[in-house]
Design a protein around this nucleic acid. Structure first.
Lengths: 183, 183
DNA sequence: GTATTCTTCGACCGTGCGGTCTAATAACAG
DNA sequence: CTGTTATTAGACCGCACGGTCGAAGAATAC
């Protein structure tokens, strides 16, 4: 699995054939299929593992923040911190998700991701309810939040030396302004 | 080519084989290769055609706007208007771009897209220079602008009946706030 | 030590891919 | 009508893919 993630991240999802993954792991192709039943299962477990890893410890840090604005900052910094520290994982997640969207029969994964989006939307809605955020469609803001996280993955995909700390800081101020009250 | 765009948009880039495109066009596979040399050329021309179509008339409308904030609004509304009116084209562009990024040897196309990103970055920088925009990294803002446009494509990919007009309105206010002066 | 289970390997299979080639046909120029 | 060119169809090729299978080797249980 580790090897699968590496291949996807470094060579792209399209190049991540079972043979290529097996070669990287130093085993025969059939060994991969012995442990994973079929390729879809491999991909699904990769996606699950990566997304689990990406949000590890984030809920705790969010709970430690008192205000909604602070939680928002923590979320951005945590997620981009993960991308920066686990570039391979982040790239694999980006690649896999992009491909998964178009390939057929992956509705379960899409549904899961949408559920995560709902959580973020609810967070913005709650921030509005308590009066911290101004008026905006929380769903649209949630979509843009996710796009911002994905953008971090794109950054390191195009430039491995990208300064994600500065990028995160920019995103924090951007969303801070975008969620302000008053017109 | 029209058929290629349709297949990519409706069935996904991965399913858009030469045979599938030819079948859709009602011709033999070899006919496609007679007109396009190879698949890469087809993809490249599709991407070119779609991106040309997406910005058709946009420069004129931008020039008609006087302030930078107005130009920003016009850009968002124009691009999302295109997505709404030519969903097939927009979906094909999204699909193709996503795949192209990972596939090898497509550096030319990536470079072209990056040039377009530079233009948007310069637009934001100019807006800052004349004092209309506040302080932020124009490159990051340009990245998020592009992500916002892509988000529109994702919207119609997940829900064909998505209300892009409302989505555009939300984006306009979002970016309007994000580019405001003062902290 | 033997029987059983777990794991690995490499050969193999069917399929669909991008791409080539040949022959037949349609369009057209003189 | 004739020669030429543009266009089409379909058979074909080599390749890489996901996946299967049977035999051989490790581990483990008793």
């Amino acid at each position: 699995m580790e090897c699968a993630i590496e291949v996807i991240a470094e060579e792209g999802f399209a190049q991540a054939s079972l043979a290529r993954v097996a070669q990287r792991a130093g085993v025969a192709k059939s060994v991969v299929l012995y442990h994973f039943a079929n390729k879809d299962e491999l991909v699904e477990q990769v996606l699950t593992a990566v997304s689990m890893a990406s949000i590890e410890g984030v809920p705790a840090r969010i709970a430690a923040a008192s205000t909604a604005r602070d939680k928002l900052r923590v979320m951005i910094e945590s997620l981009l911190g993960f991308v920066a520290e686990h570039r391979t994982y982040a790239l694999a997640a980006l690649e896999t998700w992009n491909m998964t969207r178009s390939l057929p029969g992956r509705l379960r994964l899409v549904a899961e991701r949408e559920k995560g989006a709902d959580d973020i939307r609810d967070f913005f809605a709650e921030g509005q309810r308590v009066g911290e955020f101004g008026e905006f469609d929380p769903r649209v803001m949630a979509v843009m939040f996710r796009q911002a996280i994905d953008a971090a993955g794109l950054e390191i995909a195009l430039d491995p030396d990208a300064d994600l700390r500065a990028f995160a800081a920019e995103l924090v101020t951007l969303f801070d302004r975008a969620t302000r009250r008053q017109s």
